[in-house]
Amino acid sequence: MIEEDEIDLLLNDLYELHGYDFTHYSRASLKRRINRLWALDKFPSFAELRYRVKSDTDYIKRFVEELTVNVTEMFRDPQFYKTLRTEVLPTLSAKPFIRIWHAGCSTGEEVFSMAILLREARLLHKSLLYATDLNPEVLEAARKGIFALAPMKQYSENYIHSGGTADFSSYYTAQYSRVKFREELAEKMVFSTHNLVSDGSFNEFDLILCRNVLIYFDKALQERVLTLFDESLGPLSYLALGAKETLKFSTIQAKFKQVDSEKIWRKMK
């Protein structure tokens, strides 16, 4: 089990030597992730773990990927997607062009869910979905549009609960234990690395989705990221967060109005 001062040493190495700043991540969760990785990779001591992190650049990729949580699913919280369908997309439909940012998209399940919503609303042709994450490896997986077959039954149920009326399996072809989603869904996606801790705004969006990413940050970093989102949102655009995340303690709250009881806020000024 790692000690608090050892976490500080490790985080300092990661920042000084590799440019990844985890010092404003939620500490309790980060500690669990480091202990998990310590056990998984069978380091006999902290000194050996630290040496590997300091000296092995290939291992850094794995370390950072495992330190961050990459659990995601398609149409997670179906009611949220239903509100996107019924309340959000209709207000964007008159726009000549729709820009959407998935911040912290991980392996891309939510980006593909969004593309399906846009297609069913006949808006996909004039939309652009920017999908970013700090891990290049997960973006590589997302870009391919290939997912495990096993959870598709659950995703299909989520899709139906979100108000979907098509046959969900018509969106992919199954090969052995994997499925590949239709190319046309991915045509409007742009994948790129972006670190919410250190990178700035790169465009103005009509909708930013950042779900279950802020929970891993402390309040100071949450505030930085929410300000970054505010700067990246045009008038009457939307910000969507995870089911247990909130704007309630944030300085940007006053500019935003919550849509229904979902974790979707509209920028009013």
Binding site: S26, R27, A28, S29
Partner: peptide
């Protein structure tokens, strides 16, 4: 604790949530 998240406690006296494995 909410459904579908791990509930953790932080040294600064706040809760944090985690949707890891």
């Amino acid at each position: 604790a909410p459904a579908d998240y791990h509930l953790l406690l932080e040294q600064d006296g706040t809760f944090s949530l985690d949707d890891s494995e």
